[in-house]
Nucleic acid binder design. Structure first.
Lengths: 258, 258
DNA sequence: TAGTGGTCTAGACCACTGG
DNA sequence: CAGTGGTCTAGACCACTAT
């Protein structure tokens, strides 16, 4: 391995540039182990902290990932799961008997698992209350928290909010919501999903989210705030999907208004 | 200012926790200056590097931002510009005479500016070639690179790809593309945008992008790969929008397939 | 047990900003 | 000019992983 092609000005940049060049040239392949921090420092004639700063720069670029006690490794390319408006499709369920998440997992040859982490009556956060037309000052909604796993690795954290009036005394208070899932029960209460709105942002994960998603440093999350409207144009369900951005993509198809 | 409520185990975490608590409690408001690294180190009885590590943790959480020679400041909440499928609407242009970008800027009371950084005949990258049905092995497309500014701050970097056959000998090779812009010229070549597809991911910015967008550390980008299909369902334009995620959001409305 | 990354110390010099 | 963040040195001890 040749590390002598370093450019840059600062020692830490020079080291980062050299290692990055090896990665982009393919001499260090995904999964390969980098020289240790102490070894890099020796080769470049710097203090260990300087080599460490170089590794930090590469980590921030999501090129490498450190494993305590083992070493620093070139990141593996992750399979990306693509989500879009069709994830709300009822037809999908009727035709396959699979929920959209399980269907996507089946497509990708991955094993799905859903963990229900809490089901509670709560006071909704302001943005949710606004969209759901619920009171932000009293426990007016049911909140269901889930974590979705693919091959036992967490992919997304989903928080669903329903008006308490719709949820009270139904299977929506249970982990197992019955055939057709949440939307099945909501149809029984007179809400058929007719249109949806997704509001999308990206950001770095909160501490809690980073923990729940087992997120490596330098990976942002895609935050999708979904609102379901029924046949009367009334909002009846709001969900927040927080995806690992390195394993999730979103796809929307739409007609162009003339 | 009271910094004694620190919890945590590690000194760097304790400092970060204390400062974060002040920010979330509102005692340090957006725009406020934090104590200097040396001052934090003195108060907590640590080395300066340890206080610096605490600041790094907060920077990674996008809570604070450092300005060389001035200090570390609590991040200002940024106004968020929301984009969605309506940004491609021709009706918008007919009714207001404004392109979608200028219209959104007018709504927000901001001053728009568009910089054309290059217009070249190039060999398209693989993902673009695939979507545009163009050859990835010869200079089969025109590439137009733009940077969009709001109040002279860069908001998004946009790269548009058109088939060379559609662009050759037209105003599309010029910076000023004439009335109705790019889509106006493409209509004259027989392509009316009928449906669109947006493929969305989030990631940390490349070095070039971070520079072009003047992006503070810890802010990811929203990457939108847009494909325009004409009246025959043929793709005729592909654009990549790279947005600062702290100042951009996306909104999609869609009917639910029964 | 040896080697790795994670954190810390106590200095140092530089580049940038403001008065 | 003094004060700030940006970078670096040359050590140290700890926690984790593999053998």
């Amino acid at each position: 391995m040749n590390l002598d092609t370093a450019a840059g000005q600062l020692p830490s940049r020079r080291i980062a540039d050299a290692v990055r060049a090896l990665i982009t040239a393919g001499e260090l392949a995904p999964g390969d182990k980098l020289p240790s921090e102490r070894e890099l420092a020796r080769r470049f004639g710097t203090a260990r902290n300087t080599a460490r700063e170089a590794i930090r720069l590469l980590t921030e670029e999501a090129l490498v990932t450190a494993r305590h006690g083992r070493g620093v490794f070139v990141r593996e390319k992750q399979r990306v799961v693509r989500w879009g408006s069709e994830r709300y499709s009822r037809r999908t369920y009727r035709e396959t008997g699979l929920t959209p998440f399980r269907l996507e997992m089946a497509r990708q040859g991955m094993t799905p698992r859903v963990e229900v982490t809490s089901i509670e009556q709560v006071t909704p956060p302001f943005d949710v209350a606004e969209r759901l037309k619920a009171s932000p000052e009293e426990p007016s909604v049911l909140r269901r928290c889930n974590i979705y796993y693919a091959d036992d690795e967490p992919l997304q954290v989903v928080t669903t909010y329903l008006r308490w009036a719709d949820a009270e005394g139904t299977l929506l208070l249970q982990a197992e919501t019955g055939p057709g899932g949440i939307y099945g029960r909501l149809e029984e209460r007179g809400h058929t999903m007719t249109t949806g709105q997704d509001e999308i942002t990206a950001r770095m994960a909160s501490q809690t989210e980073a923990q729940e998603l087992d997120l490596p440093p330098g990976v942002p999350v895609l935050d999708v705030l979904h609102t379901s409207l029924d046949q009367d144009g009334e909002p009846f369900e709001v969900s927040r999907f927080v995806h690992r951005a390195d394993r999730a993509g979103l796809v929307y198809n739409f007609p162009i208004e003339g």
